[in-house]
Simulated scan of single mutants.
Amino acid sequence: MNISQAAQQSGLSSKALRHYESTGLLVPARRANGYRDYSEANLEALRFIQRARASGFSVDEVRSLLELRDNPGRRSRVTQQLVREKLSRLEAQLRDMLEMRASLASFVDSCAGDDSPRCAILEQLSGQPCE
């Protein structure tokens, strides 16, 4: 099947397929007359990539997951460890974002939000004491 058919059946864009090919995540079954030709195995890989990316995995992490998927000698603990590490990083990012959210909420609460030029938010960001 051609790139537009593969894109449609995988739920990805043609641009995404070209990107995954350029990064080495995907190798079309063959190229005929300069056109990509995708196989059912390519579609399975594309669906795997799409689900992994939707779960937050980076292209490099997807590459590792694909290598594990295609390795009959794999150990499930390796895959689990990779996902545990991803989850740990995500939880750290979530904590950071919650802290940012609290800071922003505090900024909003400290600001009069009126027509005066004084702005407690700008003062706090400038390191000036608020009056």
Rank of each mutant, 00 (worst) to 15 (best):
Leu94Glu: 12
Gln8Thr: 11
Met1His: 11
Lys15Trp: 12
Tyr38Lys: 00
Arg51Gly: 05
Glu61Phe: 00
Val59Gly: 02
Ser103Tyr: 14
Gln80Cys: 15
Leu12Gln: 09
Ala102Asn: 11
Glu67His: 10
Glu21Leu: 10
Ala102Arg: 08
Arg53Met: 06
Ser58Tyr: 04
Arg47Lys: 14
Ala41His: 07
Ser88Cys: 11
Gln50Ile: 09
Gln80Ile: 14
Val27Thr: 15
Asp115Ile: 13
Pro28Phe: 02
Asp114Thr: 09
Asp115Lys: 09
Ser39Asn: 04
Phe57Gln: 08
Leu17His: 00
Val83Met: 07
Gly73Lys: 15
Ser116Arg: 01
Asp109Gly: 07
Val83Tyr: 06
His19Asp: 06
Leu90Asp: 10
Pro72Leu: 07
Lys86Val: 02
Phe57Ser: 01
Cys119Asp: 02
Asp109Gln: 13
Arg31Trp: 14
Leu125Ala: 13
Arg30Ile: 06
Glu67Ser: 12
Ala112Val: 12
Ser76Tyr: 13
Asn42Asp: 08
Ser10Lys: 03
Asp60Lys: 07
Phe57Val: 05
Arg84Asp: 13
Arg47Met: 06
Leu25Pro: 03
Leu17Glu: 00
Arg89Val: 08
Glu123Pro: 09
Ser126Lys: 13
Ile3Gln: 00
Ala120Phe: 07
Ser14Leu: 04
Ala45Arg: 03
Leu90His: 08
Leu65His: 00
Arg84His: 11
Met100His: 10
Leu17Gln: 00
Leu65Phe: 06
Lys15Cys: 07
Ala54Thr: 02
Ile121Leu: 06
Arg89Glu: 13
Arg118Pro: 11
Val78Asn: 13
Gly24Gln: 07
Leu65Lys: 03
Met100Ile: 10
Leu65Pro: 01
Val59Trp: 01
Gln81Trp: 09
Val108Pro: 05
Ala45Asp: 01
Arg53Leu: 05
Ser64Gly: 12
Pro28Lys: 02
Pro72Ile: 02
Asp60Ile: 08
Leu43Pro: 01
Val78Ser: 12
Ala105Leu: 12
Asp115Val: 13
Arg69Asn: 07
Asn42Arg: 05
Arg53Lys: 09
Ser110Tyr: 04
Gly34Ala: 07
Arg53Glu: 01
Gln124Lys: 13
Val62Ile: 12
Ala41Val: 10
Asp109Tyr: 14
Met100Thr: 08
Leu12Val: 09
Tyr38Asn: 00
Ala16Trp: 06
Gly56Gln: 02
Ala112Phe: 11
Arg63Ala: 03
Ser116Val: 11
Tyr20Leu: 03
Asp37Lys: 14
Gly127Gln: 10
Val83Thr: 09
Glu21Tyr: 06
Ala120Trp: 03
Ile3Thr: 03
Gly73Leu: 14
Leu125Met: 13
Pro72Asp: 08
Ala102Thr: 11
Gln80His: 15
Leu98Val: 13
